[in-house]
């Protein structure tokens, strides 16, 4: 192995996740999910049935040689590969995500491709990497031609949605979300931290400080989990938009949530080790599970009300 294969410390990890309702009439079972996500003949799909049905494709690699997005407009080029993968939860929610590890510095000129391919999912800067400026650039979105992890994730999604197993009969209309994340190593005396922001146009950004040496795949796993639960909240909140209480439309609007979404809530199902406590911050503020439980109660109350024949449902509002 050439010396290049020894992994230098990561100065920045970043990625983007797209979360979609899988547009199929019936959720995929675990066997079909494996067939659907079999992107590579040489690697198996990861399947898990506890605590919920989950399937994850092998990583696919995309070669990149392009400028990195930077908040201050500085030009830093990176060469290497971006890893992308797709995951399916309960055969119903499809996520495609791309991530890359950026070391602090790289050689001043591009090396032969083979040397990049031995380290999948790593892109080396040409020269020194300004990690903070690139983290801001990734979260804020780059200029045309910059490294675009969202486009790589979206390309994978497009490929999957063309699969013949997909019948394009979604049980409800829903809006996909995008979540961009950037993780910088925490200083030795610093606690890991996470900052979650809702930006416009269904974009979410997550800025993290993670223990030095945390693999990108682990951070990507945490961010996939965040994106999934944020999408669930967003989608169920939206079901209440524009429906007038006490009309039959309420049942039609809420029923798909009961059939397809309510059982998907399971935060931290696949978040490992050091990163699990980061979820706790979100549970305190803004309180993901608290909001979810309120929504679920609201849906159940509405359905219970509609189980009562309407003449008896009319409440006298005056004392």
């Amino acid at each position: 192995m050439p010396p290049a294969a020894s992994a230098p410390a990561a100065a920045l990890l970043c990625g983007e996740v797209r979360t979609h309702l899988l547009p199929v009439h019936q959720a995929l079972d675990i066997r079909t999910a494996a067939q659907f996500l079999g992107l590579r003949a040489d690697e198996r799909v990861l399947l898990s049935e506890r605590p919920n049905l989950y399937a994850r494709s092998p990583d696919t690699l995309t070669g990149v040689d392009c400028p990195l997005p930077t908040a201050d407009g500085a030009r830093t080029r990176a060469v290497g590969t971006v890893a992308a993968r797709a995951a399916l939860t309960e055969g119903r929610v499809l996520q495609s995500s791309a991530h890359v590890t950026l070391p602090a510095a790289g050689p001043d000129r591009r090396r032969p491709w083979g040397e990049y391919l031995v380290r999948p999912g790593v892109a080396e800067p040409v020269g020194k990497l300004p990690p903070d400026a690139v983290a801001d650039g990734v979260l804020g979105g780059g200029r045309p031609g910059d490294l675009d992890l969202g486009a790589i994730a979206d390309g994978l999604l497009t490929r999957l949605l063309r699969h013949p197993l997909i019948d394009h009969r979604p049980p409800l209309r829903s809006r996909p979300t995008r979540l961009r994340w950037a993780a910088l190593p925490a200083a030795p005396d610093e606690e890991p931290s996470l900052e979650f922001t809702l930006a416009e146009d269904h974009l979410r950004t997550v800025r993290l400080r993670v223990p030095e040496g945390t693999p990108a795949a682990e951070v990507a796993g945490l961010c996939d989990d965040l994106a999934l639960h944020d999408w669930l909240l967003t989608t169920v909140v939206r079901l209440f938009d524009g429906i007038r209480p006490d009309t039959p439309a309420v049942l039609a609007a809420l029923r798909p949530a009961v059939d397809h979404l309510l059982h998907l809530w399971m935060p931290r199902a696949r978040v490992t080790g050091d990163l699990a406590p980061l979820w706790d911050e979100l549970e305190t503020r803004p309180g993901f599970t608290r909001q979810w439980e309120t929504l679920v109660r609201r849906i159940r109350d509405q359905l219970a009300l509609h189980a009562i024949p309407s003449p008896h449902r009319e409440a006298e509002l005056t004392p």
């Binding site: 979609h20 309702l21 547009p23 497009t158 949605l161 063309r162 394009h168 979604p170 209309r173 829903s174 809006r175 996909p176």
Partner: peptide, 16 residues
Amino acid sequence: LERCVDLLLRLNAEFD
């Protein structure tokens, strides 16, 4: 044409 189909299907899953 395939890209047009991709787009229309995605929009149909999202918009009324």
